[in-house]
C-alpha cells in the first residue's frame, strides 16, 4: 500500500512538472508574439518568485516539525476529553498545529465526534485546520502584511466560534446525524 501511495505521488509530481512546462511554453509564445510584454511579465514573475523562495524552505521546515512532533492520533486522543471554553481553545490549538489539506482532517473529525466531542468544537477544529495554521499564516504575513493577516485571523476566530454554536444548535434542534 505504501508503495502504491509513493507511485501515486510520483505520478502527481510528474503531472505538475508537465503543467509547469506547458505554462512556460505558453508564456514563451505569448512573449514572442508581444515582445513589449517581456519586461513586465519577467520582472513580475521574478519579484514573486524571490519573495516566495526566501520563505518556502522555512515554511516547509515548520510543517515538517509539526507533522513529526504532533502525530495525528495524539490530537484525536486529547481532543475527546476537552469541553467548554477549554475545548474551544484546544480546538483552535489542535487545528492550528498539524499540517496537510483539509480533507485529511475529515476522518479525524469523524473519530472525534464518535468519541463524544461537541459539534461546535469540531467546527472550530476544522476551520482552524483550514485557515489558521501557523506555516500558512507565515506565508500570509509575507505576502499580505501584518495588518491583513492579524485582522483576518481575529475575525475568523470570532465568526467561526459563532458559526460553530449555530451549527451545533441547528443539529441539536433537528436531531443528530442519520448515519
Amino acid at each position: 500500500m505504501k508503495e502504491e501511495k509513493k507511485k501515486e505521488q510520483k505520478k502527481k509530481m510528474l503531472r505538475d512538472w508537465l503543467i509547469f512546462a506547458g505554462m512556460v511554453v505558453v508564456a514563451a509564445v505569448l512573449i514572442y508574439l508581444y515582445p513589449s510584454k517581456q519586461e513586465p511579465v519577467i520582472s513580475a514573475s521574478f519579484d514573486y518568485l524571490s519573495e516566495m523562495i526566501f520563505i518556502l524552505p522555512a515554511v516547509m521546515v515548520l510543517m515538517g516539525l509539526f507533522s513529526v512532533y504532533i502525530p495525528k492520533d495524539t490530537v484525536v486522543k486529547y481532543f475527546g476529553k476537552a469541553s467548554g471554553i477549554k475545548g474551544f481553545f484546544l480546538a483552535i490549538l489542535f487545528g492550528t498545529l498539524p499540517t496537510g489539506p483539509l480533507y485529511v482532517a475529515f476522518p479525524m473529525a469523524s473519530t472525534m465526534i464518535k468519541k463524544g466531542a461537541r459539534i461546535s468544537n469540531i467546527v472550530m477544529f476544522l476551520s482552524a485546520w483550514a485557515c489558521i495554521k501557523i506555516p500558512q499564516e507565515m506565508v500570509e504575513l509575507q505576502f499580505l502584511g501584518p495588518e491583513f493577516m492579524l485582522a483576518r485571523l481575529f475575525l475568523t476566530i470570532i465568526f467561526v466560534g459563532l458559526m460553530g454554536l449555530v451549527i451545533e444548535w441547528i443539529i441539536d434542534k433537528t436531531g443528530g446525524e442519520e448515519d
Binding site: Q9, M13, D16, W17, I19, F20, M23, V24, V26, A27, L30, K37, P40, V41, I42, A44, S45, Y48, L49, M52, L56, P57, M60, V61, M63, G64, L65, S67, V68, Y69
Partner: peptide, 28 residues
C-alpha cells in the same frame, strides 16, 4: 522532520512555479 520538509518542498515546488508564471502573465 527535515527530511519531510525537503520532500514537501520538492512536492510543492512545481505548483509554486506554475502560480508564479500565472501571476507573471496576469500582471503583464
Amino acid at each position: 522532520s527535515l527530511k519531510k520538509a525537503a520532500f514537501s518542498f520538492f512536492k510543492i515546488l512545481p505548483t509554486v512555479l506554475i502560480i508564479i508564471v500565472i501571476i507573471g502573465l496576469m500582471l503583464g
